[in-house]
Design a protein around this nucleic acid. Structure first.
Length: 500
RNA sequence: GCGCCUGUAGCUCAGGGGACAGAGCAACGGCCUUCUAAGCCGUGGGUCAGGGGUUCGAAUCCCCUCAGGCGCGCCA
């Protein structure tokens, strides 16, 4: 799991320009920023956009700053490096809250520093995959010819890879990067430890600084299959990258380059207004309003998590007033993470998500807490039974493994079998989910399973059941449900709270 | 203009050749002395955008139309 850091792009350049032109500040002031640095930059970024609108001539600064960033020269480059590093730290902090961890952070600046592009360029030239234009508008550019209906709308039927001024485009860099991912580049980064999580997990970073490099790093790159998790708007560029592999003769790797495309999250007009945006009549009629970092319009993950946590805290406190405050906080965290995680996986990935605050902050119905609640109820049965000298979870596991049960032909039995059948469909669902790259299938399955268990739980007592045969069947079913639910939780990254 | 995606209940979404089309939310009505009511049960709500075709059978596959979103740069 790698997270590409675009540290030489316009976003970083604009923040540098914001420090210089709006705040009239530099490195010392940046280092002195005490508030959340990502929030600080989020606001500054929007102010830079406003500045460009008021004074369009300021945009000319960008070219010069970008050049300095690529060359890694001067104070702007130092400031940019500091800004990027600190924002990445913020990002990792946020992701750690929901249990997301990365193995490696490859920096765009390191792709440049390690001259990945130069190597790829040689290969592309030698294999005649790209050729230089000798006349016309594009004289001097190196272009890749592209054919087929996918590329039918490309101007001239060719994509510029190297500009006439000799600089490489984003696609060019991406082809080189993709080659590295498959171990086809005959070059590698230097690696160092970026930071270590409390769980001991090390996040590695690429680096060209010999002092930062460490030899004991895991092997990166050389993948058998590559999933590029990038939003659907980049489908076109991804297709060109894959085409680049093909023309270099790597048909197998091209086939194993998977663009894991997902649609954007947009705001419902109501949510946009809640964020303080004034909408035009026209906008209000739209289904969704696009988020925009440039305009400072969006929902920050930390804010959403904070809101979820506050709400979960309230509800846990109401239900478990005698609990230790620290335990309450842990439960609230687990519930907020479950809520956000489920929200993120419940939708298919090819549809624009309409983000709505009320829906996102709900713990009822098809939500993470609903699933967690079902699991907690199942766990509660075992706790109660064990405390009363009955079978605990371990015993139930043994029964499930060794025991068999037979139930009379009744409607009640039908419902027991139906639960068992659904439990048994887990593997098949995971298979389909992997084949279609739709985690939402696992999510829907887990929700349906929780629903069925909740109905079962309501209707059929386990602990109190006097008939030993029914009781054993229910103990086994409850165990199997819980075990399967935990597997689903594991796949979705949803924590299982001890109680709710 | 060309390409990709989407159109299913008031809203948000599942279902992608096979049974009377499903869920959540919202609305309405029930259910806590019995393993936690973040729950359960019930009611109402649909021209599956429209038209044509293929098929024993179409929300699902094909064609056309309409509507919406996105993409198509010597930006990243």
């Amino acid at each position: 799991m790698q997270n590409y850091i675009d540290d030489t792009g316009v976003q970083v350049a604009d923040i540098v320009i914001g420090f210089r032109e709006i705040l009239h500040q530099g490195m010392n002031e940046a280092q002195a920023v005490r508030e959340k640095f990502d929030y600080f930059c989020w606001d500054l970024y929007a102010r830079v956009t406003e500045m460009y609108e008021r004074q369009p001539e300021k945009q000319q600064l960008r070219t010069a700053v970008l050049k300095r960033l690529e060359e890694r020269e001067g104070e702007d480059a130092m400031l940019a490096a500091y800004v990027a590093r600190r924002i990445v730290d913020c990002h990792l902090d946020t992701m750690a809250r929901i249990g997301v961890r990365y193995d490696l952070l490859p920096w765009e600046s390191d792709i440049l520093a390690h001259r990945f592009w130069e190597r790829a360029f040689d290969r592309l030239k030698k294999s005649r995959a790209i050729e230089q234009v000798t006349s016309g508008d594009r004289k001097g550019c190196w272009v890749m010819a592209l054919e087929g209906p996918r590329f039918a709308d490309l101007k001239e039927g060719e994509k510029i890879i190297v500009r006439s001024n000799g600089t490489v485009t984003y696609v060019g860099k991406d082809i080189a990067y993709q080659l590295w991912k498959f171990g086809l580049l005959d070059a590698d980064f230097g690696y160092g430890r970026f930071r270590e999580g409390p769980d001991g997990h090390v996040v590695w970073t690429t680096t060209d600084d010999p002092l930062e490099q460490q030899r004991d790093h895991p092997s990166f790159g050389g993948a058998a299959r590559v999933y590029n998790v990038i939003d659907v708007r980049q489908a076109y560029l991804q297709a060109i990258v894959v085409e680049g592999l093909k023309v270099l003769g790597y048909a197998d790797q091209a086939a194993r380059s998977i663009h894991f495309a997902y649609e954007m999250v947009a705001l419902t007009p109501g949510s946009a207004e809640r964020l303080g945006v004034t909408l035009s009549e026209e906008d209000r009629k739209r289904a969704t309003i696009e988020m925009s970092g440039r305009r400072g319009l969006g929902v920050k993950a930390d804010d959403l998590l904070d809101a979820l946590e506050r709400q979960a805290l309230e509800e846990v406190t109401v239900r478990n007033p005698d609990l230790d405050p620290r335990e309450i906080r842990d439960l609230a965290r687990a519930i907020s993470v479950g809520a956000l995680r489920y929200l993120m996986v419940k939708y298919t990935r090819n549809r624009v998500l309409a983000f709505d605050f009320d829906e996102a902050l709900s713990f009822d119905g098809e939500t993470g807490p609903y699933l967690q609640y079902a699991a907690v109820r199942a766990g509660g049965i075992f706790q109660k039974m064990a405390a009363a000298g009955g079978p605990d979870e371990k015993t139930a596991a043994v029964w499930a493994l060794e025991g068999s049960f037979d139930l009379p032909r009744t409607d009640a039995a039908e419902e027991h079998w139906a639960l068992l059948t659904l439990i048994a469909r887990f593997r098949e669902t995971v298979r389909q989910s992997v084949d279609s790259l739709e985690l939402s299938q696992v999510a829907k399955y887990a929700f349906n399973l929780a629903q069925r268990f909740n109905a079962f739980y309501h209707k059929y007592p386990v602990m109190q059941e006097p008939d030993a045969r029914w009781k054993k069947a229910r103990v086994i079913l409850t165990y199997l449900f819980l075990a399967q639910m935990r597997r689903a939780f594991d796949l979705m990254g949803i924590p299982e709270p001890a109680r709710m």
